[in-house]
Amino acid sequence: MTEISVILPVFNGEKYIKKAVQSVLNQSMGDFELIVVNDGSTDSTSDIVSGFDDERIVLLNQENRGPGAARNRGLEIACGRHVMFLDSDDWFCEDAFEIACGEARKNNTDISIFQIIKYDSGTYSQNDWFNLNNFDETFENRIFNPHECRDFLFDISVSACQKIFKRQFLNEINAKFPEGIYFEDMPFFFYTFLKAERISIIKRHLYVRQKHPGSITESVDSKFLDTVPAGQILMDIFIENDCYDMYKFDLLAFKINGPRYALMGIEEKYKKQLYMLIKKDYEAIKLTPYYDDYLDNLGPVKWKFFTDILRSNDYDEFRTLNQTKSSPAK
């Protein structure tokens, strides 16, 4: 059995795909398959990938269906003992497979999480999020379960590219990325993490995330409309896995904050559309058993956002309401 299946979804990635693929071929451990899912690219992406003469590369061409569907197609045919993900504008450090696979095999982990380093115009940088600084020294060199991370679960990086997964584990829990939306990493992370029984961390930088103008988080555009459905899926994951009560306080704050920050920063032409998506979501929440939990557990800023959305009839009215000061009536 191949040790690692690397799944690389790509859409119009001609500027960066060659370096991404080369970082896989240059690995110190060569027992892998690279599954490149060309998600309807209209540039020379497919030709660039086809130009690599290496039997370990599998190129799948499909109509554009989005990153979640592309990753799921890769998972369908993956045959490695472990699975790793690579974004088309990033790259692996040359010993990433050897170190990650060594950790996963030694400790028989469902998920092992490693560090990411950021790259921007020739400069490398680190941050707490990608450096796993929320995991103190008591988590190093041992196996742990997800509930040991209860106090900082929502401060863990959700990036699928920062983990190595046991493929058998993913198959057993039927792990799939949400399709048709962006921010698909987030629900996938929480679903797999909560299902895992054996987790470990690797305090080594094994992956380089490149910042550039086309990166998904560099411009707050229409993609951020998907913070609403992603949050809805997240709630379902916690409820269906009997984890809602345990994580209620932080879960509700996390769900509110995604669309709240998106509405603050999204391009002006999308603000009314995003407001209406949030409004529809909150009106639906009023009809569930969880409505009172929002009112009773949100902090003042998030409580005001939640109630101002419900009190307003359109975005302009909401903006007027939200500019006034008030406190939760508790």
Rank of each mutant, 00 (worst) to 15 (best):
M1F: 10
E3S: 15
V6L: 08
F11C: 03
G13E: 06
L25Q: 10
I35C: 08
D39H: 09
S41P: 00
S44M: 12
D47S: 13
I48T: 01
V49G: 00
V49Y: 00
S50C: 01
R56E: 13
V58Y: 09
N72C: 09
A78V: 13
C79T: 15
L86Y: 03
D87Y: 04
D87P: 02
D89E: 08
F97T: 09
F97N: 15
K106G: 13
K106C: 08
N108W: 11
N108S: 12
I111P: 00
Q115C: 15
I117W: 02
Y119V: 10
S121G: 09
S121P: 06
S121W: 11
T123F: 08
S125Y: 14
D128Y: 03
D128T: 11
F130M: 06
F130H: 01
L132Y: 13
L132T: 07
N134C: 09
D136G: 05
T138D: 11
R142E: 10
E148M: 03
D151M: 11
A160Q: 02
R167M: 12
E172M: 12
E172K: 11
N174V: 14
A175S: 07
G180T: 00
Y182G: 00
D185T: 07
F193V: 05
E197W: 02
S200A: 05
I202G: 02
K203S: 07
H205F: 11
L206V: 11
T217F: 14
V220M: 04
L225W: 07
D226W: 01
V228M: 14
Q232G: 10
L234Q: 01
M235R: 10
D242M: 07
Y244D: 05
K248S: 11
D250R: 15
A253Y: 02
F254K: 04
R260P: 06
R260V: 05
E267H: 01
E268K: 15
K272V: 08
Y275G: 02
K279A: 06
K280V: 02
D281A: 06
I285N: 07
Y291K: 06
D293R: 01
D296G: 14
V301A: 08
K302L: 05
K304L: 13
D308A: 04
I309T: 11
L310F: 05
R311C: 06
N313A: 02
D316S: 13
F318K: 00
S326Y: 03
S326A: 03
S327V: 09
